[in-house]
Structure formats: structure tokens, C-alpha cells
Amino acid sequence: MAMQIHVDIVSAEGAIHSGSAAMIYAPGEMGELGIAPRHAPLITRLKPGDVRVEDEHGQMEHFYVSGGMLEVQPDVVTVLADTAIRADSIDEAKALEAKRRAEDALAGQTAEFEYAKAQAELAEAIAQLRAIEKLRKMKAS
């Protein structure tokens, strides 16, 4: 039997995939990674992209991750996938939004609150659009 390695792909909102594989390809932060069984222990951040799992028959399975962490041990690979699009700037924007929401809510009138909510939603949409644009640029280059 060919050498195999166990793969777990989990996200915070649920397990995505679990099984054995002959080879795994993942978009590491420092470059594309190919992981064969008995790989040295490694831990890295993932870029948004495709995680490919190849089974012993050469069948590929694709999983899109929007970032996350990859942990490699000699016979287990774990992908801790992000469910959200993450970038420091977006996180920061979200933090600011959460703060402003609190201020608005405490300041008070419902009408203003609704307005603030709409505004926050708009800001969120803009942040997401920005992230998507970034991703597109990264793909293009």
C-alpha cells in the first residue's frame, strides 16, 4: 500500500473534510506547498486559494479556503480554515464598526440607530468589496 497521510480540514463553523490522501497541495504564505506523507512538522499561514487533496488513485479534491493555518505532522495534516475573508485592515475596520455601533446605540434614538445600522452595513459591504478586489489582483498577478 502506498504511503498515506491523514487530512482534516476544519473551520470554526464545522468540519469540512476528513480522510486520507497521498499528497496535499496548499497555498502557503511563502509559496505553494506540496505535502507528502512523512513531511517534517510544519506550521504556516495560508493565503486565500485552493487546497487540493490527492488520494491514492490520483483523484483530486478541491477545497477553497479564504485563508487560515496549516499544521503538518508526519502523518496528520490539519487545515484550520477561515470562514471569513481576513486581513488586518478589515479586522481593524470591523473593530471600529463594532465600537461605533456601541456609541450609536447608547446615544440612542431608534431612527438614528437604524441609520447607523444601515451605515455599518454599507461599510461592511465596502470592506468586503475591497477584499474581493485584492483577491482578484492577487490572482491576476
Partner: peptide, 26 residues
Amino acid sequence: VEAQVTHLGDKPHIEDLIGTIKVMLN
């Protein structure tokens, strides 16, 4: 109240929580 988030619905997403948590961690 430093930060708040409401209306997460029945299926909360981690994405909606990030901002609130980040305020605290910062």
C-alpha cells in the same frame, strides 16, 4: 459599552463577531 453587535440570527457567523472581539483584545 465599548462595542456591540446584534441581530446575529439563528446562524451566527464568526465574521460578525471579529470586530467586537478585536476591540477587547486591542
